[in-house]
Write a protein that binds this DNA or RNA. Structure first.
Lengths: 139, 139, 139, 139
DNA sequence: GTGGTCTAGACCACG
DNA sequence: GTGGTCTAGACCACC
């Protein structure tokens, strides 16, 4: 699970977790039946209070995106992965970023170049993840 | 001033204002010596309490980006507009957006297309603004 | 914490708080790691609105003198306690007082005597504080 | 007239003026019948809006410390100069200064030494004033 | 329990 | 008209 907390954003941590986990479920990065990292381990990796992780997981369960198997863990449920929905879910952060780039006076070309570069970095990081990635930041 | 509040983001309103205003100052959208929209007017436009706007303005003053002229208003101070700084300031939101797009399983191409479209919408909105200022949101 | 608000001074309450707290931190009356009186309690003791105290605390945080631990409280950060800085920080109010004494035509001897007396009263008050904390003003 | 504005104090300028002028009248630095510096000149010297000086003068007149002779200027009226009153009037700023020194952890000895030094500087400045002092800060 | 944010509305200082 | 301060009270996030 590729999660990144933005301490400067001002948004509550549990909310950042919910949004990112939800995105990965809807986006298929977390596949049906996959087990979520345990509360304690994730809390350790993110250096966050376990209650915070627990709260986020709780909200995912309430929304029906995740299923709790007692004594075992949380698992991703079957979920509509409608491409239109996914694009819609991406719109908020993208608009936010476009706004900021615009306010900063970056040209469309500059902004697009930066965006593409950052996107590729993420892809690269995750593939490295997949190979060997025991227990360290970033998650 | 093109400002957009994201009620869903969880970040405090005054902080959203600070970040966006700071971006416009550094980005040159608000030029040196220009007067900021008055507290009361901006509060009215954004349908927000004047104290919230005032708090944001106060923080900008503390940071030295803005100067208060008593009884008159707030004015943009001289500020370094180093392009490198601007790109750096844009990085946070861009990375956030790239992350979300990636988590949602959007391809780089899809994401870039959406980003470009949103950026252009902003440019269009602002130019329309300039022509005829209908006294409505967005600001 | 020995804090005294001067209602007649015309200076905003939050600013009086900031200056006095800053002085105590730099002066070592509030030691490293010590927890500040909670917003609500201090507000109660000073008979002031909690937001006013909170605003003062917020400014101390912005200045880096104080650290917020979420859900726990505010704590004094490590800070240079250079004696020269302390004397410099004392100069403002001392000059102010000297000026007023001079303007009122008090001789140097008279003024010094009054100053010494007032200083000793403060020391006495604080030591009494330490022994038995009667839940009353002054703080 | 030896007047000093403290921009950092947060107290309104006109109030600082009132207090200092009042002190000089009660203290006898401004003697009976003496004419106050004109609004415009004082405003110029202090680099302050004339309305601010005017407001201060107006309040002195209301309090009966000063008399307006139309077309000529303001003059100091006869006023009780009870020494006890003068000491009382000095107490506020002195206590303020003692508090700050105490909060900063200055010893009584240190504080007294600083106070004495500042007091003497004022006396010296004023005597220099008396000799030749056309139009520059400090007033 | 901790601090933080926001609102609505009153009042002040300054030009 | 400008910005600023303060209050009272509601509600949130985190431990």
């Amino acid at each position: 699970m590729l999660l990144r907390l933005d301490k400067r954003s001002g948004a509550p941590i549990y909310q950042q977790l919910v949004q990112q986990l939800k995105a990965q479920i809807v986006g298929g990065q977390l596949s049906l039946g996959e087990q979520l990292t345990s509360v304690r381990e994730l809390a350790g990796q993110l250096r966050v209070n376990p209650m915070t992780v627990s709260k986020a997981y709780g909200l995912l369960e309430v929304e029906g995106l995740v299923e709790r198997k007692r004594g075992i863990g949380l698992f991703v449920r079957d979920v509509t992965r409608d491409p239109a929905l996914r694009r819609e879910a991406a719109e908020g952060p993208l608009r936010q970023a476009a706004l900021r780039a615009h306010q900063l006076g970056l040209s469309e070309q500059e902004a697009l170049a930066m965006f593409a570069k950052l996107y590729r970095e993420l892809s690269r990081e995750e593939s490295e993840h997949a190979e060997s990635r025991p227990n360290t930041e970033p998650v």
